[in-house]
């Protein structure tokens, strides 16, 4: 709530009877920024994402600290008000696209439900919103496609549907939790391009969470490295790649594959970030 950042978090999260999963994690995202959050599995990345959305109640986790989002503290916010934010100002895209789509519902129903959660309008309004969202993620908006069930979609299509759902209400912040990890390389790069484009076109911020450093480097302006529940290092992408300070970051860098084609990748990423 200080310097005009969209999201400013400083949280400690613990599950009952266990040491904290996140310890005093600080994270700031500026409006229109793509922020990368990198860490191994189990480092607490997803917990952070759910903490922001206020969806940790199920796991009976307790959140201490502050999460300022658009000048309000999400931690102190009532569930009712949080609900109004979820899907409208804050949206989420999960890791496995097929599991994240309801197998019993058609694409249209799924999108319609997401739209109705925050909008009152005629079905024509709804259809228009759906069509726009579908177009924005480069999916056909025709009846045939909208009548499909999740099982009839490819993984890439499914992920696009989820992204379409996430951008339906033009959120200020989209949290992508390992959104590309389950995809093959080509699809992965397409989705990354899609995120970059949506960021460019709508100006929404993206918290891009991944264990995959290269993909993070490809689209993120800044990166935070999460290790064992703490942010060990954060800064502009280029800076982190050029001079990793923390031993864990250095280990992370050195574990990158040194393929001939990938030589000089950091600089390419830097170039992208500079754009």
């Amino acid at each position: 709530m200080n310097d005009g950042s969209l999201l400013s978090a400083q949280v400690t999260v613990r599950y009952p009877g266990k040491p904290p999963v996140l310890r005093g994690v600080t994270l700031e995202i500026a409006p229109g920024e793509i922020m990368g959050l990198v860490g191994q599995s189990g480092s607490g990345k997803s917990t952070l994402a759910l903490a922001v959305l206020g969806l940790l109640g199920r796991q009976r986790a307790t959140v201490e600290g502050r999460i300022w989002f658009q000048d309000t503290d999400l931690v102190a916010m009532r569930e009712r008000d949080l609900r109004a934010l979820r899907g409208r100002s804050l949206s989420l895209v999960l890791q496995s696209p097929l599991a994240s789509l309801n197998p019993a519902l058609r694409v249209r129903t799924q999108l319609k439900e997401a739209w109705r959660a925050h909008a009152n309008g005629t079905s024509a309004d709804c259809d228009a919103a759906i069509r726009a969202a579908m177009t924005s993620v480069s999916l056909p908006a025709d009846e045939d496609f909208l009548r499909k069930h999740a099982s009839q979609l490819s993984v890439g299509q499914a992920q696009r549907v989820l992204i379409a759902m996430a951008v339906l209400h033009r959120p200020a912040l989209l949290i992508a939790d390992e959104a590309t990890s389950a995809l093959d390389v080509i699809t992965q790069s397409e989705i990354l391009q899609l995120f970059a484009r949506l960021n460019r076109e709508t100006g929404m911020s993206i918290l891009y969470i991944s264990h995959d450093l290269p993909s993070v480097a490809e689209i993120c302006q800044r990166i935070a490295i999460l290790h064992e529940g703490e942010i060990v290092e954060s800064g502009p992408t280029a800076q982190i790649f050029a001079a990793p300070r923390h031993p864990y970051t250095r280990r992370l860098m050195s574990s990158l594959p040194h393929l001939p084609t990938r030589t000089g990748e950091p600089s390419a990423a830097q170039a992208a970030a500079a754009k």
Binding site: L53, L55, R83, A84, L85, R86, G87, R88, S91, L92, L94, A99, S100, L101, N102, P103, E113, A114, A117, H118, L162, M165, A166
Partner: peptide, 9 residues
């Protein structure tokens, strides 16, 4: 998908 739906509000 239930988590996703919740995240959609």
């Amino acid at each position: 998908f239930v988590l996703q739906a919740q995240a959609s509000g």
